[in-house]
Design a protein around this nucleic acid. Structure first.
Length: 853
RNA sequence: GCGGGUGUGGCGGAAUUGGUAGACGCGCCGGAUUCAAAAUCCGGUUCUGGCAACAGAGUGUCGGUUCGAGUCCGACCACCCGCACCA
């Protein structure tokens, strides 16, 4: 007997798998196809526990699916472009390409050590020239189709990263990666026309039953559909019109003024002649922090009168026009009509500027009337509104829209904006166009693709080195041959990740997509990844799929049939007591009585909250160390045990050691137990103990398959442990007839069921059971229905709903027998003594409830 | 403010969807083994009372429906997440 030595055993099986190419994607065979996909990693240089968790989840599904007879595609790749490579270049003088490719090599080896069943033949790195070429081809096709355009736009400028950010990448006014306060700059940018698909992207969410509800909710909110009307107001004494969007056309008679965004074109027109307006606009531009941020009460709303007046569409009255900082250019038309009585923001502004408040909606009688500084936004009955008087809000909206005529029409407004996808960075996919003095924007010809990045760049100062690279930048115009300039902006890395999962299938194609292969595997059966991509990446991928459909590359709409978002991997934080610096877990040990102390000097350590593993808090455990110490199977098993995959998981030493102890015990059990010979015929009869083991075996099959399919891996592990508990205490010799056979069945079944979770150990145990071939290529066992059924039922007996005992009867015992047996329980007799039995409820095979008083 | 989620032993979590609350594990306690320890094995472990049989309480709080509620309904509390001056 040998000891369980994961390092040796895992290396051995990884080599054997590779030599036999067991994870190669099978050619079409008539078997059903399944595409199992996990979000590709950024090649930071080291895998972390979050990777271990996602990739284990995906791998379990891939392996389980193969066992169930599916042809499985399970690829992996690298999100190769991105800022950390440039930061590394600045800090350490390493070229981003070299840094990235060497990180990819390291991480590939680390992923291999996890025993993941990838077909590396499909591997894709988004920073490879081939990927760039195909992405640039797609870019030009989309540009041609009008799905991409270039426009001067207010951009979110990250002063730390020296680049523009998409709205989605600005969180609380700060860059999502740098955390720097974002500035506003007017720049020419490339946009993807995602708004063209706003309605479709929203409606299609209703047809994604295997997506988490919260992700769909987040996307719905992000797309932000509002129904209402567009209204045009004629400016008095001029020929301009001001167009506004409103969701409350019913309140038009309560409108007391109009307000323009400081960024509204008309605001700048006014500024030309009106110094007050000019000063106000300048103030707003200088301090972007004052906007996009809610400020409560009248003090939070500033603005100035433009002196303009507009005509009310239904009244002889005219309305004043203000420029107000609470009106956002980014939403609707950048102008509003203000109804202070029924909109809190308008009311705040009106109070600050002493403007009229005209209530036009009476709350229903049972609703409390709002205070003087409180706008009423609920339903009610219209008043002071001419032809609307007496209507409710919904009817009034309809009536106003019907009467608008030339003044406006029904309109649907979305919150989502076109996707600003250009970045002023080096390490990204170049936008394949050149600018020519005479010809304007000219696409790079097909034959000249890919536009690659120059190698000879320096990162000695901030900004985009492409702009400073004259030799690279200067080109001949493809159209007229005169001197032109390359676009120096590169694409947001979210463009790369918006379609990589199609490229896996097309990795060797000389065109962006291998349509036949894509049609075979897509949409993806299951996508697994982090919730942090709920909006950005997943929305872009959904958009890209539709865009590709519309340029004729794809025959379907949605990329991912199923989506699963796993929880974070967390760990307790520790701080040094005096100066509060964070301590790594390996610097800390338990000091008994629940406390912790520093390993080096025994000084007590302050134990903080359990938080997501992060380098800044040092509460990280390196998967490479864990795999070296305990093995990949232990790491995988621990990841799957205890916590349901969608919840956060707390990494603990005792937890890993528990998983390691368990695998050791299994290892020993396979040495010590004595199952029957391989391939022996099933005995005609089984002694009771053997029969009971078989029942446990077959019930475990059913339970584990249900658990894996429902992503309840923690339960699958619990059920496997129940099975192993059963065979560990099983004595084949003492069991009698069929004992050895039942034991072999239990052990083989255990190996089959656990193979998706702990693939290396499973192979080894399979071999030691005397079986040939790879378990990872073997079939999932089938549960025998006869063994799933119970023969006897334990029935709870209650008196007035309180449990007083249980009786055991043959399954299917009649109501009368059940009732009689229950009433004979001494405990029941005692409990109903002196009371009158009024009713006895009998649920066969389940429960008896005696109602007595 | 709007939207979504979660709340069960000391801890992670189970509970066939209205029918024995606490599966499985971590931790802890006791025992065996050992000169001793580690490892391993056996037993116990929701709380309170009791040697025990057993009794009482118990799934965030309060109420309701029901023979019976962790599960269904209503109100509330706490925490977490997303969005947020979105007209």
């Amino acid at each position: 007997m040998s000891a369980y030595n994961p390092a040796e055993l895992e290396a051995k099986w990884q080599e054997a798998w590779e030599a036999a190419e067991v994870y190669r994607t099978p050619p079409p065979s008539g078997a059903p196809d399944r595409y199992v996909l996990e979000m590709l990693p950024y090649p930071s240089g080291r895998i972390h526990m979050g990777h271990v968790r996602v990739y284990t989840l995906g791998d379990v599904l891939a392996r389980y699916s193969r066992a169930c007879g599916y042809s499985v595609l399970h690829p992996m790749g690298w999100d190769g472009f991105g800022l950390p490579a440039e930061n590394a270049a600045m800090e350490h003088g390493i070229h981003p390409a070299k840094w990235t490719w060497s990180n990819i090599d390291t991480m590939r080896a680390q992923l291999r050590s996890m025993g993941l069943s990838y077909d590396w033949d499909c591997e894709v790195a988004t920073c490879s020239p081939v990927y760039m070429r195909e992405q640039q081809r797609l870019f030009l096709k989309m540009l041609d189709a009008g799905l991409i355009y270039r426009a001067e736009a207010w951009a979110n400028w990250d002063p730390v990263e020296h680049t523009v950010l998409a709205n989605e990448q600005v969180i609380d006014g700060r860059g999502w990666r740098s955390g720097a306060l974002v500035e506003r700059r007017l720049l020419p940018q490339w946009f993807f026309r995602i708004t063209r698909y706003a309605g479709e992207l929203l409606d299609a969410l209703d047809h994604l039953p295997r997506w988490p509800e919260r992700v769909k909710t987040m996307q719905r909110n992000w797309i932000g559909r509002s129904e209402g009307a567009r209204l045009r107001f004629q400016v008095l004494g001029g020929n301009e019109e001001i167009e506004v969007f409103t969701t409350r056309p019913d309140t038009i008679f309560g409108a007391t003024f109009l307000a323009l965004s400081p960024d509204h074109p008309l605001s700048s027109t006014c500024a030309d002649t009106n110094p007050t307006v000019a000063a106000f606009i300048q103030e707003c531009t200088r301090d972007p922090g004052r906007r996009n941020r809610e400020a409560a009460g009248p003090a939070g709303k500033t603005g100035v009168d433009t002196g303009l007046r507009v005509q009310h569409p239904f009244l002889e009255r005219s309305l004043r026009v203000f420029v107000a900082d609470y009106v956002l250019m980014e939403y609707g038309t950048g102008a509003i009509f203000a109804v202070p009585a029924h909109d809190q923001r308008d009311l705040d502004f009106a109070r600050a500027h002493e403007l009229d408040v005209v209530p036009v909606v009476d709350p229903p009688p049972d609703v409390e009337h709002p205070g003087p500084d409180e706008a009423y936004v609920g339903d009610g009955t219209l008043k002071n509104s001419e032809f609307l008087d007496g209507l409710d809000v919904a009817a009034a909206k309809q009536a106003v829209i019907d009467r608008l005529g030339e003044h406006g029409e029904r309109s649907i407004q979305y919150r989502i904006h076109d996707w600003c996808a250009s970045r002023q960075r080096y390490w990204g996919c170049p936008v394949p166009v050149v600018f020519c003095q005479d010809c304007g924007v000219v696409p790079v010809p097909e034959a000249d693709l890919p536009v690659t990045l120059p190698d000879d760049v320096k990162f000695d100062r901030p900004g985009n080195p492409l702009e400073r690279h004259a030799a690279w930048k200067t080109v001949e115009c493809p159209a007229c041959g005169s001197v032109a300039e390359r676009e120096t902006q590169t694409l947001d890395t979210f463009v790369d990740s918006a379609w990589y999962y199609y490229r896996y299938i097309s990795a060797h194609a000389d065109q962006p997509l291998d349509r036949e292969a894509v049609a075979r595997w897509c949409p993806t059966f299951q996508y697994v990844g982090g919730i942090e991509h709920a909006i950005l990446h997943l929305l872009y991928a959904r958009f890209f799929t539709r865009a590709l459909r519309d340029i004729g590359e794809l025959p379907f709409d949605e990329p991912f049939d199923g989506l699963y978002c796993q929880g974070m991997v967390c760990h307790r934080t520790y701080r040094e007591p005096e100066d509060g610096t964070w301590l790594y877990p390996e610097e800390v040990e338990a000091s008994g009585n629940g406390g912790f102390r520093r390993r080096s000097d025994g000084v007590p350590v302050v134990a903080g909250r359990v938080e997501k593993m992060s380098k800044s808090r040092r509460n990280v455990v390196d998967p490479v160390d864990i795999i070296a110490t305990y093995g990949a199977d232990v790491a995988r098993l621990f990841m799957l045990s205890d916590s349901p995959p969608e919840r956060d998981l707390e990494w603990t030493t005792s937890g890993v050691e528990g998983a390691a102890r368990y695998l050791q015990r299994i290892w020993r059990a396979f040495d010590e137990l004595e199952p029957g010979p391989v391939g022996a015929a099933q005995p005609p009869r089984f002694a009771p103990a053997a029969h009971a083991l078989r029942q446990t075996t077959h019930r475990t099959i059913r339970a584990v398959e249900e658990d894996i399919e429902a992503f309840r891996h923690n339960r699958a592990v619990a059920h496997l442990r129940t099975l192993s508990n059963a065979f560990l205490r099983f004595d084949a010799a003492a069991a009698g007839t069929g004992g050895a056979w039942a034991l072999r069945e239990a052990l083989e079944t255990f190996v089959r069921l656990s193979a998706p979770l702990i693939p290396h150990l499973a192979e080894e145990l399979w071999q030691r059971l005397g079986r040939d071939g790879f378990i990872c290529q073997d079939a999932w066992p089938e549960a025998d229905p006869d063994l799933l059924a119970e023969e006897r039922a334990t029935i709870a007996v209650q008196v007035n709903g309180k449990l007083r005992g249980t009786i055991e009867l043959a399954l299917g015992a009649g109501e009368a027998d059940t009732r009689e047996a229950a009433l004979q329980l001494p405990n029941v007799i005692r409990a109903i003594e002196g009371a009158e039995v009024r009713k006895v409820i009998v649920v066969p095979d389940r429960v008896v409830n005696v109602v007595a008083r």
